[in-house]
Design a protein around this nucleic acid. Structure first.
Lengths: 127, 127
DNA sequence: TCGGGCGCTCACATTGATGTGAAGGTCAAC
DNA sequence: GTTGACCTTCACATCAATGTGAGCGCCCGA
């Protein structure tokens, strides 16, 4: 078990945000008798996951829905999944697909542009 | 040429946001003598692009850098690209790659979860 | 026992992307 | 010439993610 400073170190995440994620229901550390937060080592990965999803543009509200299934490595049972949650998950999965497609398309365009810009810079070809 | 209401209709984007995008330098409509904004029809696509990138998590600041090359369909010349911009673009392209990978991974996990949850729901298998 | 480092909560500030509304100009139609 | 739909700017409100710091408790080591 680690305290907040240690987790902060391990994940490169400000303590403030770890508390915020808890407030948002993304982390639920234990408390030691003196009130200190106590985190499982596994929370290091979980925080990485949270930050990745945030960076990908998902709001905490969605991440809260998504996380419970991501951190079960398929050998663990499934929590009782209310159909609404499943619906929401499907929807979110589709949105993620859209994002991926969009990012991929535009990244391709950027790459292509960079290719051309690079060669024109090399050849000195301006407008 | 279309006015803001028409573009708003055509893109499903609130007028407020069209003005905001302009303020952010993402759109630069003409003005008619009475002060009304006048948009090229091509701005419909451009707005779609902007919103796609925003939805993908890019900030307007980056989109501003990225747009000038995306809407030049490779037959148009390259604007004088300061090396800093190229750097920024490369960086952003890499971030987009990360996002894509992250989204893909997690979407895979969601899909998998949905698969299992669905079958367990079908079979009635709970915890 | 005291100081320093870590933890706690509370709470306000900020940034980015938006919502919303007020106060007013333009213009076409009636 | 008035109404109504559209436009303008200005400005404040909101929400999410985050920064910052005050004021206070815990605990270990000198």
């Amino acid at each position: 078990m680690m305290r907040i400073g240690e987790l902060s170190e391990a994940t490169g995440t400000p303590r403030r945000l770890l508390r915020y994620y808890e407030e948002q229901g993304l982390l639920t550390p234990q408390r030691s008798p003196n009130g200190y937060r106590e985190y499982h080592p596994g929370n290091v990965d979980r925080v990485a996951q949270i930050r990745g999803l945030l960076a990908a543009g998902l709001p905490t509200r969605i991440i809260r829905q998504v996380l419970p299934c991501l951190n079960k490595p398929r050998d663990i049972h499934i929590p009782d999944a209310p159909p609404e949650v499943l619906k929401a998950l499907e929807h979110e999965r589709d949105r993620m697909t859209e994002r991926v497609e969009f990012l991929t398309r535009n990244r391709g365009a950027i790459t292509e542009y960079l290719g051309v810009a690079c060669s024109s810079a090399t050849t000195g070809a301006g407008a």
